[in-house]
């Protein structure tokens, strides 16, 4: 049961995080706001690394040769794009609409990835039920923007 509560609490934290990065970017501008966001995050990871060096979270399963690859920089660059986008979008359209649109994008992409089994995701057909779900979410987004 505690994991259920932790799940929605995690969602709430994401909402607060987006708001805070949006507010920081209002003052600093999106570029500087994105930089400070990542710098703070990196500092926090360094502290966590020092405290949990022996933890399971820090154990790698791959051999040394396969451990690091040049494409590991990809998530960091994509993360910058996401943070930058949120920084300019949230102050203009509000948190709710921004999150709803992002949710729609997330579901469409996760559905497509499941359809083709991309990046190791379990294969699952993009059936009518999922399509209906996306259509209803799109309707919800329209209602949020229109009224």
């Amino acid at each position: 049961m505690k994991y259920v509560h932790l799940s929605w609490f995690n969602g709430m934290l994401i909402g607060v995080m987006l708001l805070l990065s949006g507010l920081a970017s209002e003052v600093f501008g999106p570029y500087k706001g994105t930089f400070y966001f990542h710098l703070a995050g990196f500092t926090a990871v360094c502290v966590i690394f020092l405290f949990f060096r022996k933890s399971d979270l820090n154990q790698s399963t791959a051999t040394v040769a396969k451990r690091y690859a040049p494409w590991f920089i990809l998530p960091g660059i994509v993360n910058v794009c996401i943070t930058y986008t949120n920084s300019i979008v949230v102050p203009r359209i509000g948190l709710t609409v921004a999150l709803a649109a992002a949710m729609l994008g997330q579901l469409i992409m996760s559905g497509m990835m499941s359809q083709y089994g991309l990046l190791g995701t379990p294969k699952q057909a993009f059936d009518k039920r999922r399509l209906l779900g996306i259509a209803i979410i799109a309707l919800g987004l329209w209602l949020m923007v229109r009224f």
Binding site: V45, I48, F49, F52, S55, L57, N58, Q59, S60, T61, A62, K66, R67, Y68, A69, W71, F72, L74, P75, V78, N79, C81, I82, T85, N86, I88, V89, I93, V97, A98, L99, A101, A102, M103, L104, G105, Q106, L107, I108, M109, S110, M113, L118, L119, G120, T121, L141, V145
Partner: peptide
């Protein structure tokens, strides 16, 4: 709104790639 939707798409790609990276070198 389109930009937000695109950032949502990027989030999913990032989650999947992060999962692969974490499985190789650990989450931290």
């Amino acid at each position: 709104i389109v930009l937000s939707g695109l950032s949502g798409i990027a989030v999913i790609v990032n989650v999947a790639v992060n999962g692969i990276v974490a499985s190789r070198i650990g989450t931290i």
